[in-house]
Write a protein that binds this DNA or RNA. Structure first.
Length: 395
DNA sequence: GAGCCTTTGAAGAGT
DNA sequence: ACTCTTCAAAGGCTC
């Protein structure tokens, strides 16, 4: 965890965020990751695509081997770049995130020493209004269209559209007045952050805009419908008169989720990938490639999210959403013959200390003894559960 | 149409 | 105290 200034005794920051920065090996990995160029991204993309093709016709073991291969390619790329020296382009991908699509970060941030995190922090861009959404919806921080920074070359980027301007903080305050008694005491330091999230008692903001963390019970599609209904033509009224279901309050996003939300569009644009699983793999690696300072911004943002969430829904618990999904996966995982196990299980299985550090790719191999994706002794690394699986499958 | 995949992190539950 | 499980987002894909 980046040594965040927990400032003023705020104990909401999670201590285990430290894990991300615990070992020097990871720092090395960061350095390597920073050398990950756009060309490599293409390679990774290619390997990921191949992997997904493999997935269609293969069992889990083959898939895992594919992953190992992909990781090996990735590691080799790292080496190549280390040899080539610090060219590092990637179109500035690893520069500090611009947050250009995250409205409340466009405001001066009292928590961050650098103030507005984006050079264009006060250049308020304009947003596309998909699905006939109300323009005010663009001010909601959770709206993807606004969170995700559309790369300038993308035709969907409406930020160049002349004549329309997003309101800044003061205006936000007027758009999202604090409902009397609806929210607990929000510290002044959070007020800049909170305007767009203020809600009425029904989970709806007084403006009629739903809080992004609140969705109708049945999920995404219905959420879309929810949005559409919000600004639908009058003839759709009868359908809306159905008895309103209790809205679901979603979990606040963690640091990585916030990072993903911001960077997803960028990765999609660069890679022409659409599959979220592959994109998330890339984003996971980029996340590790971020510097402490870069990650700290997201940890801080997530901390504020949690804090605000707690203020808004003091009685909410993560448990409230347990069991909302049916877990086919859970049944699968009960098959221990194919489950390589979590790193924690591996530690226990091999009698390793809890302080043992693990490589990113397979999450099973102690960094000091073997790096599964690059270790020349692989697949002789019996300590790696995935390697074990590999051995069991092919030997 | 529900669930899976895939990632990291937070938090509740279980041991 | 420690480990395990679930859920947050995303969209193509599978069943």
């Amino acid at each position: 965890m980046p040594q965040l200034n927990s400032g003023g005794g705020d104990d909401l920051g999670a201590n285990d965020e430290m894990i991300s920065f615990k070992d020097e090996g990871e720092q090395d990995e960061k350095i390597q990751e920073n050398a990950f160029t756009e060309g490599d991204l293409a390679d990774l993309k290619s390997s990921l695509v191949n992997e997904s093709e493999i997935n269609q016709n293969s069992n889990a073991a083959v898939v895992r081997r594919g992953q190992q291969d992909e990781q090996r390619v990735y590691a080799e790329k790292h080496r190549e770049h280390l040899d080539e020296g610090p060219k590092h382009q990637d179109g500035g991908m690893y520069k500090a995130p611009s947050y250009s699509g995250y409205p409340f970060l466009m405001l001066p941030d009292p928590y961050l020493p650098n103030g507005p995190v984006s050079p264009s922090a006060n250049k308020v861009s304009v947003v596309q209004q998909p699905h006939g959404m109300h323009p005010l919806t663009s001010l909601l921080p959770y709206s993807n269209e606004h969170f995700n920074p559309s790369p300038p070359h993308l035709p969907t980027d409406m930020s160049q559209k002349p004549g329309v301007h997003r309101h800044q903080s003061q205006d936000l305050a007027s758009f999202y007045p604090l409902p009397p008694g609806g929210v607990g005491q929000i510290p002044p330091s959070m007020s800049w952050f909170s305007h767009s999230l203020m809600l009425g008692p029904s989970g709806m903001h007084p403006t009629g805009i739903p809080h992004p963390a609140i969705v109708p019970p049945s999920g995404k599609q219905e959420h879309d419908q929810f949005d559409r209904n919000m600004y639908a033509k009058p003839h759709s009224e009868p359908k809306r008169e159905r008895e309103p279901k209790k809205p679901v309050i979603k979990k606040p996003l963690n640091a990585f989720m916030l990072y993903m939300k911001e960077m997803r569009a960028k990765v999609i644009a660069e890679c022409t990938l659409k599959e979220s699983a592959a994109i998330n793999q890339i984003l996971g690696r980029r996340w590790h490639a971020l510097t402490r300072e870069e990650q700290a911004k997201y940890y801080e943002l997530a901390r504020k999210e949690r804090q605000l969430h707690m203020q808004l829904y003091p009685s909410w618990s993560a448990r409230d959403n347990y069991g909302k999904r049916k877990r086919r996966k859970r049944d699968k995982q009960q098959d221990s013959t194919t489950d390589p196990g979590s790193p924690k299980k591996c530690r226990a299985r091999f009698g390793l200390s809890q302080q043992t550090d693990w490589c990113g790719p397979c999450r099973c191999v102690p960094l000091l003894s073997c790096h599964a994706s690059i270790c020349p002794s692989f697949p002789l690394s019996f300590i790696c559960c995935y390697a074990q699986l590999y051995m069991l499958s092919f030997h």
